[in-house]
Design a protein around this nucleic acid. Structure first.
Lengths: 125, 125
DNA sequence: TTTGAATTACGAAGGGTTTCGTATAATATT
DNA sequence: AATATTATACGAAACCCTTCGTAATTCAAA
């Protein structure tokens, strides 16, 4: 059900990272990468509010927006959709592809190994 | 550079799986999941050809389409874009999320462990 | 040969996203 | 108080994707 456009996701991530923010806050962050007008960001955020994926506090002149979706849940959802559309539902083939990129540090590998051990223990039961 | 719409990816996957195919072939495969007209599939494939992501042989009446993008490269590309848009570029956090879903078999885990060993050996050098 | 079926070509409509210009309102500055 | 700055609201345009109807073409069958 969670379907986010590219910009919506970008804005969401900023709201997740920075917490409740004004349009200006978000726009400044966005402007680091991208070049578009303030009212564009405003409009996007208004639409997000109207869709219910963001909520806003309009009690003062400068409205404050917050994410209305949980970061965890949303990412899980996006990932599962991505896996099914691009890797035919096989999460392992995705993992193989992801790790194969060559830019994974030893620390990260250790984390993953630890997780695998945990999963294996659970599988045995 | 590789940007595929949802339907384009679906068609691409069919072309990868089945090799060079007619519109009818593709349409029949697509119709297993989805309900849309034959000319819709035709149009999509024509557009894909015009974009250069598919090529077609028009020597006989029934045109034969083939994928013009490599499956490997394309998926690698899509994945890296997905990781950067959704997981801030951290492939390990994606892997953790993916494995955390609980539907990974022992065999798959073994594959992943083997890959990790390989990576670790390479890292040491 | 005429009819019918399958194929491609094409245009247009509908939906969503992104972008921005302009208007209006609230606040700050001088 | 007058002016400038900052904010929201709104509509419209541009773009892309998806969908389909219709026409034109080719081929096969009756």
């Amino acid at each position: 059900m969670t379907k986010l456009s590219e910009n919506e996701l970008k804005i969401m991530q900023i709201l997740w990272d920075q917490g409740p923010s004004s349009v200006r806050d978000v726009h400044e962050k966005i402007s680091e990468d991208k070049d578009s007008g303030y009212t564009t960001t405003l409009k996007l955020m208004q639409i997000m509010a109207s869709k219910g994926i963001a909520v806003r506090d309009t009690s003062s002149r400068t409205h404050i927006y917050s994410a209305a979706l949980s970061e965890q849940k949303t990412k899980k959802d996006l990932l599962s959709r991505f896996i099914s559309s691009t890797f035919k539902g096989s999460s392992s083939s995705l993992v193989l592809q992801a790790l194969g990129n060559g830019n994974t540090t030893q620390k990260e590998l250790d984390e993953i190994k630890a997780l695998i051990s945990t999963i294996e223990k659970t599988n045995k039961k």
